[in-house]
């Protein structure tokens, strides 16, 4: 295999292997919709994690409210269906765009803020949206949520749709980071004032980063509506289950790396599911009770010992592992 050079970015041979594997592995599980479902969730978290990573990991704007864009994308798909019977599938187009519009509007407020204030500001906006969508029943059907009977029972179509979205997300981030804009993003992350001083229109580039990031988050939301067939404000605007988990996916995999969030998504979904299902029922039942505890410990461990995440600290991990093997061998 050879690297493929495209106009905006290269697909390295490793990436080609990854793409092939993400096609082959799910096909191996042809008779297990349950596993296919897990793969779909992994891909959805790849989209969310990567979109967050562009804004936070590369541009330094650590959003604690990505649920706002995910949720608005889901409702962009669901509301026209509920009110006028328009197919939620249109959401794959409109969800992202709606999220970009919301992101731009919220950006007017939150981009005035820096560091922890930005984090808190984004968190607050997502929470406010959650409350509004729960209260305004005439518009959103409130906590009763929106239900849609999904189009297919078969999971493969869904998998390959979200797979394509995930690849598009990852490679759009890669392409951006190869471009001039990517360089500006990094300089904003390292020192916003310095970036401004050398003549970078920081406001503009923060908005570009935000737009791409929110577009994919909104698209993921729309996909969620189409695939799950049910949304309510507590689910799609969730602080912990969406916003925080999105960040943890990025952190575990590696902030500011192209493939980090993807790796983080795999780890997050598999670890949670392995423990929740007590290793597919092979381990004693009580293990399923501690799945959230294990995940919390994993987060602590990663932050403490692998600050760069699995991908960011990959060389370090390999080195340590070699040392460990060497020690064992010499004994």
């Amino acid at each position: 295999m050879k690297d493929i050079n495209l106009k905006f970015f290269t697909i390295t041979k490793y990436e080609q292997i990854i793409i092939l594997l993400t096609i082959i592995i799910p096909l191996l599980f042809y008779d297990s919709p349950y596993m296919q479902g897990l793969f779909i969730f992994i891909m959805m978290w790849v989209v969310l994690g990567s979109s967050w990573n562009l804004l936070a990991g590369y541009t330094g704007q650590v959003s604690f409210g990505h649920a706002a864009y995910f949720g608005i994308g889901a409702y962009a798909a669901g509301l026209p269906f509920m009110h006028w019977g328009i197919s939620p599938w249109w959401g794959l187009l409109t969800g992202g765009i709606t999220a970009v519009v919301l992101g731009y509007l919220l950006g007017i407020v939150v981009f005035k803020l820096r560091g922890p204030y930005f984090a808190l500001g984004t968190l607050a906006t997502a929470e406010i949206l959650r409350i509004i969508f729960g209260q305004e029943e005439w518009l959103t059907n409130g906590h009763n949520g929106i239900l849609y009977v999904t189009t297919w029972v078969d999971k493969y179509p869904y998998y390959f749709i979200i797979w394509a979205i995930a690849l598009a997300t990852v490679f759009s981030v890669k392409a951006l980071m190869k471009s001039k804009a990517g360089f500006y993003f990094l300089s904003i992350r390292e020192d916003e004032d310095a970036a401004k001083a050398i003549g970078i229109n920081t406001h503009k580039y923060k908005n570009i980063s935000m737009a791409v990031s929110t577009f994919w988050a909104g698209t993921a939301g729309a996909f969620y509506m189409i695939y799950m067939g049910f949304i309510d404000p507590e689910v799609v605007f969730a602080l912990h289950n969406i916003s925080i988990i999105t960040i943890l996916v990025g952190i575990i995999g590696g902030v500011g790396t192209i493939w980090g969030p993807a790796v983080g998504a795999i780890i997050m979904v598999l670890v949670q599911e392995l423990f929740r299902s007590a290793f597919f029922g092979l381990a004693p039942q009580w293990i399923s009770k501690v799945h959230a505890l294990v995940f919390g410990l994993l987060v602590i461990f990663v932050i403490l010992y692998m600050a760069g995440g699995v991908v960011g600290d990959w060389d370090l991990i390999v080195k340590k592992f070699r040392k460990f093997r060497l020690k064992k061998a010499t004994k």
Binding site: S32, P33, Y34, G37, L38, F41, Y224, M228, F230, D232, V235, E273, R276, S277
Partner: peptide
């Protein structure tokens, strides 16, 4: 709901 969905799927498949 999403975990419940996955859980039902696991029970069935």
């Amino acid at each position: 709901p999403d975990v419940g969905r996955a859980g039902a799927e696991k029970l069935i498949t």
